[in-house]
Design a protein around this nucleic acid. Structure first.
Length: 285
DNA sequence: ATAAAACAGCGTCATCAGTG
DNA sequence: CACTGATGACGCTGTTTTAT
């Protein structure tokens, strides 16, 4: 596989990797490499879930609110009930709820797609179905933030871009837009610094938004207008892509921290179970 | 030291979904 | 329905890590 091809493979499977992380979380056995790298300092305990049932354990709703430790009722074999303050918490809305749904969708579509592959025909529409997007990261995290206090909320506007007008179209960019020879630009400081690629007519001296189609007469003017619109669209999309990637990174970080939290919870639960086992098991005399 | 692999980030295009 | 923002995919470049 070529370098680019490999990278494409990785990128294309980013969502799938996230799904695997999600499914692992639901199993309670988190072994995702991302989680390992993120919480390598933690002691991950897996493979200890095959513990024989010695007593009936039920979670008594303490009614103390979300996230507070519940009281675990342990029904001993003798019929005696023991109240144990446990670490079991009320189920929290998961970071991965929406993607979970998406997982089902993808899996289902992938199944149906096999027939299409057998026919050897995958049109672009089906491809889009397969690659159906998840809800936006902003939506996912904002929904979470309304439920879970610990989840950071994605700001509508970037904090570091405070002071810069969000609407690029109305931004006065008479001489601030430059492009490199490769069409790239560099951002320094709060305001991006662009470098001119070539002396094109793309963005004239300032983005003049007042040019109505009716005022354009010559084909050259129309072409200039089209070019100007294109450059404006590209510039907006550039910024949108940056913002989207930033949100995506934030989303992934959120998932990773969630994994870390769940690992800690899992470890505590395992320890608690061991403690309960000690309590319940008959002591040899 | 250096070539190759891996990774990160960017710009662009195509497409979807929400909105007026 | 046109417009616009969001996002996946792709190709590319630069940087870092790894193997020799």
């Amino acid at each position: 596989m070529s370098k680019c091809g490999r990278k494409k493979y990785i990128k294309t499977n980013l969502r799938q990797m996230t799904m695997e992380t999600i499914e692992s979380q639901q199993d309670g056995s988190v072994t995702d490499s991302v989680a390992e790298s993120e919480s390598a300092h933690m002691q991950t305990q897996t493979g200890q879930n095959s513990i024989p049932t010695l007593a009936q354990v039920s979670i008594a709703g303490s009614g103390t609110g979300r996230g507070s430790p519940a009281v675990t009722l342990v029904q001993l074999p003798s019929g005696q009930t023991v109240h144990v303050q446990g670490v079991i918490q009320t189920p929290q809305p998961s970071v991965i709820q929406s993607p979970q749904i998406q997982t089902v969708q993808v899996a289902t579509i992938a199944e149906t797609d096999e027939s299409a592959e057998s026919e050897g025909v995958i049109d672009s529409h089906k491809r889009r179905e397969i690659l159906s997007r998840r809800p936006s990261y902003r939506k996912i995290l904002n929904e979470l933030s309304s439920d879970v206090p610990g989840v950071p909320k994605i700001e509508e506007e970037k904090s570091e871009e405070e002071g810069t007008p969000p609407n690029i179209a109305t931004m006065a960019v008479p001489t601030s837009i430059y492009q490199t020879s490769t069409g790239q630009y560099t951002a320094t400081g709060d305001m991006p610094t662009y470098q001119i690629r070539a002396p094109t007519t793309a963005l004239p001296q300032g983005v003049v938004m007042a040019a109505s189609p009716g005022s354009l007469h010559s084909p050259q003017q129309l072409a200039e207008e089209a070019t100007r619109k294109r450059e404006l669209r590209l510039m907006k999309n550039r910024e949108a892509a940056k913002e989207c990637r930033r949100r995506k990174k934030e989303y992934v970080k959120c998932l990773e921290s969630r994994v870390a939290v769940l690992e800690v919870q899992n470890k505590k639960l395992i320890e608690e179970l061991e403690t309960l086992k000690d309590i319940c098991s008959p002591k040899p005399d």
